[in-house]
Simulated scan of single mutants.
Amino acid sequence: MKVELRPVPYAQKDLLSNLYQFYHYEFSPFTEEDMNEDGRFDANIDYFWEGDHRWNPFFIMLSGKIAGFAVVLFENLDTDPDPTHVIYDFMVLPKYRRTGVGSAAAKKALALFKADWAVAQMEKNTPAISFWRKVIGEFTGDAFKETYREDIKKFIQRFSTKSQTSA
């Protein structure tokens, strides 16, 4: 199994936008988001390519096929030269779940940047909470701190990859 992350160029924005429809559909039980009158979820991702260098979208590739996507956000790059990195969005297509593709892709994303990280999950999304606790625990040797933010109803794992030699 060869899992890779490939940066999403502007020319493939529509493809990523299509994948975001599945992402919003799957999240709708947690977000209670409705489709618009055109039968689509509102998913404007234009800003990923509009000169805001905080956004880093990647396709998750498995043997040359798109298996999902990940978006890494340099959260406070506009105010801090050493920004916290965030897995902003992450989705693996259902056919590839529970095969190791998601874990491999997540670890590759975390290994891309030497940084302080924060990864958050909605409290209602228990599969995501379990996934990220396991992945981050394996990736860091359980060297992470988790907090719960009542105001936003999210669990957040914080850790650093600044001192890691390689992952």
Rank of each mutant, 00 (worst) to 15 (best):
H53I: 09
P94I: 00
A109M: 14
L73P: 02
S103I: 10
Q121H: 11
F58S: 02
P94R: 11
P83R: 13
L62S: 04
V101G: 05
A70N: 07
N36H: 08
G102T: 06
P94H: 06
N36P: 06
L73C: 07
A106C: 15
N125H: 13
N76E: 09
M35W: 00
D89G: 04
F90G: 02
E50S: 09
E33T: 10
V86H: 13
W49V: 04
V86N: 14
I87D: 00
N36G: 11
A118G: 14
A109T: 11
H53Q: 13
N36K: 09
G102R: 00
G39K: 12
A43T: 09
F74G: 04
T99N: 13
D78K: 08
W49G: 03
L110S: 08
S63Q: 11
T79A: 13
Y88F: 13
K108F: 09
F58D: 01
A115H: 10
W49D: 11
D52G: 04
D42E: 15
D46R: 09
D34F: 00
D34N: 14
L110H: 08
S63F: 03
K95T: 10
P81R: 12
L77C: 04
I45Q: 09
I87H: 01
A115I: 11
L110P: 07
K124A: 15
I60D: 01
A104R: 06
D78Q: 11
D78R: 05
F59T: 00
F41C: 09
Y47S: 12
K95Q: 15
G68N: 04
S103A: 11
P57E: 01
N125Y: 05
V72H: 00
K65S: 09
A104F: 04
P81W: 06
P57L: 02
H85Y: 07
V86P: 04
F59Y: 02
D38C: 11
L73A: 01
V71E: 05
T84D: 06
G102H: 04
F74E: 00
W49T: 02
H85G: 03
A43G: 10
T84V: 15
A111M: 08
G102N: 06
I87Y: 01
R54S: 09
Y96I: 03
M61F: 02
V92D: 05
F113P: 00
D89K: 10
A115Q: 13
M91Y: 13
W117P: 05
D78N: 12
H53V: 10
L62D: 00
V86C: 12
N36I: 04
A104E: 15
K95H: 11
G64A: 07
R97I: 02
